[in-house]
Design a protein around this nucleic acid. Structure first.
Length: 737
DNA sequence: TCATTACTCCTTTTT
DNA sequence: GGAGTAATGA
């Protein structure tokens, strides 16, 4: 192996790779060769024998990034990377540590990882025990608190120091405790535990901590801006001895605040790690000057930044960033598909085109249109393979076969396919299991000894228990692929889909076959099940020319010749909920997300917004995203693609029901969408309700009398609902009476 | 027990 | 417009 990799780097990249000991933060903007630096650095450490591969901890956020890094290092140092035992996602590395020391968390080493659905089921159970009204306090709120605590690295007994939410009768703490206890009894962990429990083990066991501190001579971290507190604490505690931690990140691309990512981790790096060196990578090898200029002008509106400027290495400016305004979301999809057809006809590859959306509900419009127009596309991200119903069912069967006491899985499959074991029976099983403190499986056996069930039900349950017993006996003795096939056959599960007439059943069977196919790559059933929730991803390794549709979050790290960003509308992007919940911090994160979107494009970038779109099934008006006006004009080529006739006919109608009429009008006027007299006319419309004492009707509150008026806000004394302040636009004037 | 229907609340983003 | 849930009927 040669030092060839060094020659491919620019000066600051080289500096980052050659920096040997002590903390290092590489601030790498979009498209500045961050992955190249990281992999070269890894290769360099191995190449110069500063460390064995097995003594390097290299963490990424996604499996994709981990795989990518693995193969790139392989390319540099030649052949397979032997001994890179500690390269993986935070979660998979956490799982690995946890499995080695599971007894310290009172788990068996073959614990299973619960997905979000199962988590929710579990929390619901816990809530019911606490006598809390699910309607008033939705279970997922508790779950998000627990997730929040786990993201901060707090065990149930540590949250007293942290302001406890009053939410849910102040029972959040005990719910967290019970939830953990329940997980433990099921020999399960959730995603958060994969980080929290290893941290706890390291914090409370000096010997073990020592071992890992010695083990990891070098620590490399990808996407440092997206680390949350537990991840930060893990990195800190592990790096304390050797102090060789190198993090790559971009504060302008921090987009996982909602998952607990703390931008302060990267902003405070120099304070947190003594004598830290910071190297900036600012030469962008991806995008044209115009695109970079647009991205730069947008992100400059953020305050929380370390500051860095992307410089293009292109000589010419390239095309300007296109902004197109369409009438409706459907028109928007139409426009984009026409653009794509043009590219298609010019003979260019569709693989170079991506449509990046803020939220997945936006994808539908495009899928519909593409199917109609026969434009090949792929959806990236979307529902994870193992989250599909049929896959989860199959896995539940396999887990039950391995461990019949897994209640969550038991409940999932006991009546799938239908065995006539319904809610009533399950309730009885649950009660019994609580009474005699055993699993549902054991409780079923007990009940079968009695006459509590109707003969028919009893018989069905008996058969089911017998099946499980049989599988459980055989599973260690025969090949895991064969036993999976046997289980699916005997349970009648495959049969169920084969007899199913719905259009999806065929794909489901395909998916199950795919899953079984994957199994042979693992050495045993346990091994397979351990990996299934963490790393299993079925790649759509098709080489067919297709347009990619994905969310902005899953687009991070990718690049395309041409990028479309539809739905540039306030409320959609920036997302309303994000603004409501997090205010300016939320807005800045949305802006970073937009920045990620813009910087995915190499040569062509098209932003579109529609004036109307269906939200929750009903038409809602949309105003252009504030991000559009934050991009400097010099980089933009803007056009409105609907006729004046349409404006006159429809804009009025659109504005009439907008909830923020006044501000919407101002915005639209500022954006040049309305001519002066339209504006006045609409103002009059806003002010049409002027009479105090006027009788009015409100769709939700019924009839009432106007008490006072403040521009578009009206105080009404409703006959049934009492005094309320409502928007004028929601009131109908009632004339007679 | 299961199927149908009425009704609610909703939806951001993912390991 | 759709998923999940509660109520209702077969």
């Amino acid at each position: 192996m040669t030092n060839d990799y060094l020659n491919k780097l620019n000066d600051s990249q080289k500096e980052a790779v050659l920096h040997s000991d002590g903390p290092l933060l590489i601030l790498a903007g979009a498209g500045t060769g961050k992955t190249r630096v990281l992999t070269s650095k890894l290769a360099h450490i191995i190449n110069t024998k500063q460390s064995f591969p097995s003594n390097i901890l290299a963490v990424t956020f996604t499996n994709k990034a981990a795989k990518e890094m693995q193969s790139r290092i392989g390319n540099i140092i030649g052949g397979a990377v032997e001994g890179m035992n500690w390269l993986g996602t935070f979660h998979s590395i956490g799982a690995k540590i946890l499995r080695y020391h599971s007894e310290l968390a009172e788990l068996r080493s073959d614990f299973t990882i619960l997905d979000t659905d199962d988590q929710l089921k579990l929390i619901k159970e816990v809530i019911r025990m606490e006598d809390i009204d699910e309607k008033k306090f939705p279970p997922r709120f508790f779950l998000s608190f627990i997730e929040g605590w786990k993201n901060k690295g707090l065990m149930p007994n540590e949250i007293s120091a942290y302001p406890i939410e009053i939410f849910g009768k102040g029972k959040s703490t005990s719910i967290y405790e019970n939830y953990q206890a329940r997980l433990q009894r099921l020999n399960c962990v959730d995603f958060g535990d994969l980080l929290l429990l290893p941290l706890h083990i390291l914090k409370t066991n000096d010997e073990i901590l020592n071992k890992y501190q010695k083990l990891f001579k070098y620590i490399l971290v990808d996407e440092y801006q997206d680390t949350n507190t537990v991840q930060y604490l893990l990195l800190r505690i592990l790096s304390q001895k050797n102090n060789n931690i190198a993090c790559v990140g971009d504060d302008d691309q921090s987009i996982y605040g909602w998952r607990g990512a703390d931008l302060n981790n990267i902003l405070n790096f120099e304070k947190d790690f003594e004598n830290a060196r910071v190297i900036r990578l600012e030469t962008n090898y991806r995008s044209s000057k115009n695109i970079l200029g647009a991205a730069r002008s947008l992100i400059s509106h953020n305050k929380d930044r370390l500051g860095k400027e992307l410089k293009s290495c292109d000589d010419d400016l390239g095309d300007k960033v296109k902004i197109r305004t369409l009438w409706s979301a459907e028109d928007e999809a139409n426009f984009i598909s026409e653009e794509i057809e043009n590219i298609q006809h010019s003979g260019k590859s569709l693989n170079n085109i991506a449509i990046l959306v803020r939220a997945s509900f936006q994808m539908r419009e495009f899928e519909d249109k593409f199917i109609l127009k026969n434009i090949p596309y792929r959806v990236i991200g979307g529902p994870r393979f193992y989250e599909r119903q049929e896959i989860r069912d199959v896995i539940a069967y396999l887990q039950i076969a391995l461990n019949p006491d897994n209640d969550i899985k038991f409940e999932r499959i006991v009546n799938t396919p239908k065995r006539g074991i319904g809610a009533t029976t399950i309730r009885l099983l649950n009660d019994t299991s609580k009474k005699i403190n055993t699993s549902l499986y054991e409780a079923s056996k007990k009940i079968l000894e009695t006459d509590e069930l109707k003969p028919q039900t009893k018989n069905q349950l008996k058969n089911f228990i017998k099946l499980i017993e049989g599988w459980n006996n055989k599973i260690d003795k025969i090949d895991h692929v064969a036993s999976a096939a046997l289980i699916l056959e005997e349970s009648g599960y495959i049969n169920m889909w084969e007899n199913d007439k719905s259009p999806t059943s065929e794909t489901r069977i395909e998916n199950i076959k795919e899953l079984i196919g994957q199994m042979s790559e693992f050495s045993s059933m346990t091994d397979f099940l351990e990996h299934v929730s963490l790393v299993l991803e079925i790649e759509n390794n098709d080489n067919i020319d297709k347009v990619s549709i994905m969310t902005l979050h899953s687009a991070k790290g990718l690049e395309f010749e041409m990028v479309f960003l539809p739905g540039m509308e306030d409320g959609v992007f920036p997302n309303q909920k994000s603004l409501d919940e997090k205010g300016n911090i939320g807005l800045e994160e949305e802006r970073r997300l937009a920045h990620v979107g813009l910087t995915r494009a190499k040569n062509n970038l098209v932003l579109t917004n529609a004036c109307r779109r269906r939200i929750f099934g009903s038409w809602s008006p949309s105003i252009p995203s504030r991000f559009l006006s934050e991009i400097s004009d010099e980089f933009i080529d803007q056009e409105i693609l609907y006729s004046n006739q349409i404006i006159e006919n429809k804009l009025y109608e659109q504005l009439e029901d907008t909830t923020h009429k006044i501000s919407a009008l101002d915005r639209l006027q500022a954006a040049g969408y309305i001519v002066e007299n339209d504006y006045e006319e609409l103002q009059t419309e806003v002010n049409r309700i002027t009479d105090i004492g006027q009788r009015v009707f409100h769709i939700k509150f019924g009839y009432g009398i106007i008490l006072s008026i403040d521009i578009d806000r009206v105080e009404v004394n409703f006959e049934k609902a009492g005094k309320k302040i409502v928007l004028a636009s929601f009131l109908e004037i009632v004339n007679n009476e």
